[in-house]
């Protein structure tokens, strides 16, 4: 076996690392536009799904511009802010700001029958990582029209069930205000929601922590829009 001097070993490592670093940063820069496009398309698909419009990665952009007719940004007093594109807002960084400085995006979908749905993004902490989603409200700003949830690493078969239809479907028709003015959000109840409770859905057996995290996510994200919802109901 050949003997290598220490100088050689150091030079070898340094040269190797520099070459690898150059190669990787070049690849990352070249591929970034494609990756960003994928993330944008996925976001559009999610927003569309929350108003019950199925899309594929191919037609999502067209469908989005057809159905999502308006989007705007609010502050927590329910006033519209100018100059920011709602689509580019990163919810994670907004939620780390104090409540009064947060930018709150709203997407308005106009459905085939002409009625509107107001889509609000959600984000929270699950058991193992972030959970997020979109929730759409009917024009009364009270009744839930549709939801879609997703997660990064919840337990398959337990917490990960939040992405399933059987979990998302029961949210439809639930209301987030009690007696039309008191904000109560929607509870996700362990052991199942009582029949006919308009503010609760069934939790997931074995997925209690994720269920509770989802309930907290709904509450913290929706309560920020409370003033806007109360002032703009139709």
């Amino acid at each position: 076996m050949r003997n290598f001097s220490n100088t050689y070993i150091y030079t070898f490592s340094i040269v190797m690392v520099v070459i690898v670093a150059l190669l990787l940063s070049l690849a990352a820069m070249q591929l970034k536009p494609f990756q960003d496009k994928n993330i944008e398309v996925e976001k559009k698909q999610n927003i569309l799904a929350s108003v019950h419009i199925n899309s594929t990665p191919v037609d999502a952009v067209d469908l989005y511009s057809k159905y999502i007719t308006e989007s705007f940004v609010l502050n927590n007093k329910g006033e519209k802010l100018e100059g920011t594109d709602a689509f580019t807002i990163d919810l994670k960084s907004e939620l780390s700001k104090p409540a009064s400085q947060r930018l709150l995006p709203v997407f308005v979908g106009t459905l085939d029958n002409g009625s509107k749905a107001y889509v609000v993004p959600l984000r929270g902490k699950g058991l193992w990582g972030p959970i997020w989603g979109y929730i759409s409200l009917q024009p009364d700003m009270n009744t839930i029209y549709g939801t879609i949830f997703d997660h990064q690493g919840e337990t398959p078969g337990l917490g990960a069930e939040i992405t399933m239809d059987w979990f998302e479907k029961p949210f439809e028709g639930k209301t987030i205000f009690k007696d039309s003015t008191e904000f109560v959000s929607v509870k996700v109840l362990k052991g199942g929601a009582p029949d006919g409770d308009p503010h609760a859905v069934d939790g997931i057996s074995g997925g209690t922590i994720t269920s509770k995290a989802l309930e907290a996510m709904l509450d913290t994200c929706l309560v920020q829009y409370k003033t806007y919802f109360l002032n703009n109901r139709q």
């Binding site: 290598f4 070993i9 070898f12 490592s13 190669l23 990787l24 690849a27 990352a28 591929l31 990756q35």
Partner: peptide
Amino acid sequence: PPRIRIIVQLVVVATMVILVDQVLR
């Protein structure tokens, strides 16, 4: 250099894997 060969192998494999991951994404 034999003394750092496992590290060198790991660097090469890791580079390949990151490239594959980026392309898939």
